[in-house]
Design a protein around this nucleic acid. Structure first.
Lengths: 202, 202
DNA sequence: ATTTCAGTGAACAGTCATGTTCATCGGAAT
DNA sequence: ATTCCGATGAACATGACTGTTCACTGAAAT
């Protein structure tokens, strides 16, 4: 029989080169504008070879996403799990997310931009949104504010964790520490509104 | 001579139809994906006719932008100019912007999404950003906080005026009044940090 | 030495958009 | 009645990408 060893390795090498090329293009021009031709050229591989390794663009996409996430893992909630004080915990999480966003800015910007046009992007982005929601809950809970009253604080935390929020503050040229400090101020303000009753009956 | 009267009117009619078609397409599929062919089809006009009326896509673009802005004028700072109390003034402005954004959501989302890929979009968007900066200044000033100290509040107001901020809060399903209330809470929190000194010397 | 097969290079058909030319229609202006 | 000219419809060349076929190469595996 034919078991192939070194052969399989060089095969994997080619595949890896294709995935890496696709990844860099997703980052540079966005997933939407990334053509199979461009991937092949960037990987120094024949276009046909790409087709041989991946059935369709979605398959390339999946490979890219998981590879990229393994190289750029999002912040781990465990890293601030030990911090008991709610504000410090929030600060730790925000710092982690904001430096993550700074490091991976190009990819997140591209992903958000092309979200509507690239169906294969929607599942992973939705998953990340669920992750952010869970993180927000984990940061909100230690404040010990009940849910109808805590809604503003909860919404503030969730908003702060979003990439577009970071990007918006970054466009204002705020350095990372000031972004974090600003959000902490918002949280303080939002927490203070908890008692403000909605104008029900006049 | 040939002065054309009714003729000119029907000519303008055609032009108007083209601009309207382009506008609706910009809103529906985004400026980037709007092709001249699609504009012609939508306007029930021959493709060649579009070329006759506009030299290049940029020309169509300019016509669209100005027409759209005349139909959808952004909030006028004069409408809250009379409100003296800084917080109420801020509230009035935010309400105005947020209902404007709700009404024109599709276009703003498309514009922000395609900003990088459509050069003709960059000038008008930059102009709008300058407008927002001016509005932010006008809302910040009445608080009477000096500039080094007031930076967080100023940044908060500017952030709140951005379309992506509105869109992010909207994705959290906050109704307009709650968005405004939330931002007011942030502003209160940001204003309260004005005295916090930065850790200069240890 | 021979088999196997990933990758090559070239070609082809198909889709969609661009920008340009040309002869022609038909209503408005004279 | 005749001229003007905006709009038409069809055609053509161009460029980019997709997906597929085919014969071929060359190195790894036997």
């Amino acid at each position: 029989m034919y078991r192939k060893e070194r052969r399989a390795r060089s095969e994997d090498e080619t595949r890896r080169r294709i995935v890496e090329a696709a990844m860099r293009l997703h980052e540079e021009v966005g997933p939407r504008a990334t053509t199979i031709s461009a991937i092949a050229a960037r990987a120094s591989v024949q276009r046909l070879t790409v087709y041989r390794h991946f059935a369709d663009e979605t398959a390339i996409f999946r490979a890219c996403t998981s590879h990229w996430l393994s190289v750029n893992p999002p912040p781990d909630p465990a890293s601030w799990g030990a911090v008991a004080a709610p504000l410090e915990r929030l600060e730790a999480a925000l710092s982690a997310f904001y430096s993550y966003y700074r490091a991976t800015e190009a990819m997140w910007a591209a992903a958000h931009r092309d979200l509507a046009e690239v169906p294969a992007l929607q599942e992973p982005m939705a998953a990340f949104a669920r992750f952010l929601a869970a993180v927000a809950d984990g940061l909100f809970e230690p404040f010990g504010i009940g849910m109808p009253a805590g809604a503003p604080l909860r919404a503030t935390i969730r908003h702060a964790l979003d990439f577009p929020t970071w990007a918006g503050l970054d466009r204002q040229r705020l350095p990372e520490e000031e972004k974090v400090a600003l959000v902490l101020a918002w949280a303080a303000g939002a927490a203070a509104t908890q008692s403000r009753p909605s104008p029900r009956a006049a």
